[in-house]
Simulated scan of single mutants.
Amino acid sequence: MDYRTKSVIENIESNYENFTPVEKNIADFFIHNNKKGDFAAKKLAEKLFVSEASLSRFAQKCGFRGYREFIYEYKQNFVVKQEVITQNVSKVLTTYQELLNKSYSLIDENQIKRVIDYFNSSEKVFVCGKGSSGLAANEMELRFMRIGVNIDSITDTDQMKMRAVFHTANSLIIGLSISGETEEVLHFLKEAHKKKAKTVLITSQNRDKVKDYCDEIVLVPSLKHLNYGNVISPQFPLSVMVDLLYSFFVDEDKNLKEKLHGDTLEALNINYEK
């Protein structure tokens, strides 16, 4: 398989917002193309329904003297990356790809939709975790808070014990624990179940003992059995699942939620300027 090294494509991407609509059309072609071919100005202009002058202006905006120089560099940057990639880079990227493949195999879209229904029917959402799972919990709070969800992340042991007292049937409790054995998280979920709250555990271990107090056990891949899993952040599988939940949730009312997200960013900018 042919790959391009980063320089030319990153150059295009970094200048993308400076392009005219016609130039963005040209940029999109070069960004997404992954095949060697005939890039002669006349043929490409016909293929993209643009003028040769547009190709020249595009190349100049990318920092080249003209289209000929640009396309020379572009063609030079087609390399068989496997020949030059280091062993460490190869192992890490292969492990990430394996994690993504495992995530795809584990995904249950109907289950994700049920969890989204819990979001919609709950007055308050709590997400908790320790260590790397706590970082994922913090990220989840920031993401969902920006689109109008009343959500808190809890990563402190004492806070989990105290906040568990205030669970109600109108709450959604999400626990993050790759091992499925984090005592504080499991206690938080147990107490929520007693108060009739909806409970979701996101974990890599489908343990029978948690089924008594979890409405949903959402599975993510484990790093344990991967050849190079010891160098991968344990937060990664959880972050992928958070992104999936976020995507499904936003998609239900995309215009409104994108507006809310934009409003929060604007509010942050206003506060920063003050």
Results as ranks from 00 to 15, higher is better:
Ala192Met: 10
Pro221Asn: 02
Glu183Cys: 06
Ala136Pro: 02
Thr155Ile: 02
Tyr246Lys: 05
Asp156Gln: 12
Asp208Asn: 09
Glu139Met: 13
Met145Leu: 11
Gly129Ala: 02
Lys198Ala: 01
Val200Asp: 07
His187Phe: 15
Asn138Phe: 08
Thr182Asn: 03
Ser239His: 14
Met241His: 05
Val250Leu: 11
Gly131Glu: 10
Val200Asn: 11
Ser179Asp: 09
Ser204His: 07
Phe236Trp: 13
Val240Gly: 03
Phe126Ser: 07
Phe188Met: 04
Val200Lys: 15
Ala192Ser: 06
Asp215Leu: 09
Glu183Lys: 15
Asn227Glu: 15
Cys214Ala: 02
Ser177Trp: 12
Asp243Ile: 05
Leu172Arg: 06
Ser247Tyr: 15
Leu176Trp: 00
Ser132Pro: 03
Arg163Lys: 15
Ala137Thr: 04
Leu244Glu: 12
Val231Cys: 07
Ser247Gly: 07
Ala137Ile: 01
Arg146His: 15
Val165Cys: 09
Val185His: 10
Ala137Trp: 04
Ser132Arg: 15
Asn227Leu: 08
Met140Leu: 10
Ile154Ser: 02
Val149Ser: 05
Phe236Gln: 00
Leu226Cys: 06
Thr155Ser: 08
Phe126His: 06
Asp215Val: 04
Val250Lys: 07
Ser233Gln: 10
Cys214Pro: 01
Phe166Ser: 10
Val125Glu: 04
Tyr228Glu: 09
Leu223Glu: 07
Gly175His: 04
Val231Phe: 12
Phe144Val: 00
Thr155Pro: 02
Val185Leu: 06
His167Asp: 00
Glu183Thr: 13
Asn227Arg: 11
Ser122Asn: 01
Lys194Tyr: 12
Met162Asp: 12
Glu184Phe: 14
Gln235Gly: 02
Asn138Gly: 08
Lys209Asp: 12
Glu191Met: 11
Ser204Asp: 14
Thr168Phe: 15
Asp208Met: 08
Ser132Phe: 09
Val220His: 02
Tyr246Ile: 05
Tyr213Gln: 00
Pro221Cys: 03
His193Val: 04
Ala197Val: 03
Thr199Phe: 13
Glu123Tyr: 12
Cys128Gly: 02
Ser171Gln: 09
Asn138Ala: 08
Arg163Trp: 04
Gln235Asn: 11
Ser132His: 13
Ile147Arg: 00
Lys209Glu: 14
Val127Lys: 11
Leu176Val: 01
Ile147Leu: 10
Tyr246Ala: 04
Val200Leu: 15
Met160Ala: 05
Asn227Asp: 15
Thr199Ile: 10
Leu238Asn: 00
Met241Lys: 11
Val185Gly: 00
Cys128Gln: 00
Ser177Leu: 05
Ala136Phe: 05
Glu216Trp: 09
Gly180Leu: 04
Asn230Trp: 15
Glu216Asn: 07
Ile147Gln: 01
Ala169Ser: 12
Ser222Trp: 10
Tyr228Val: 02
Leu176Cys: 03
Asp243Val: 03
Phe166Leu: 07
Ala137His: 09
Pro237Arg: 12
Ala192Arg: 03
Met160His: 07
Ser132Glu: 07
Leu223Arg: 00
Lys196Thr: 05
Met241Asp: 02
Ile178His: 08
Arg143Met: 11
Asp243His: 14
Ser122Trp: 11
Gly148Leu: 09
Thr182Ile: 03
Ala192Asn: 02
Ile151Met: 06
Ile174Pro: 01
Lys161Ser: 15
Thr199Tyr: 12
Ser133Thr: 06
Leu244Phe: 14
Ala164Asn: 07
Gly131Ala: 10
Ser122Ile: 00
Leu142His: 12
Glu191Tyr: 14
Asp208Glu: 15
Met140Asp: 01
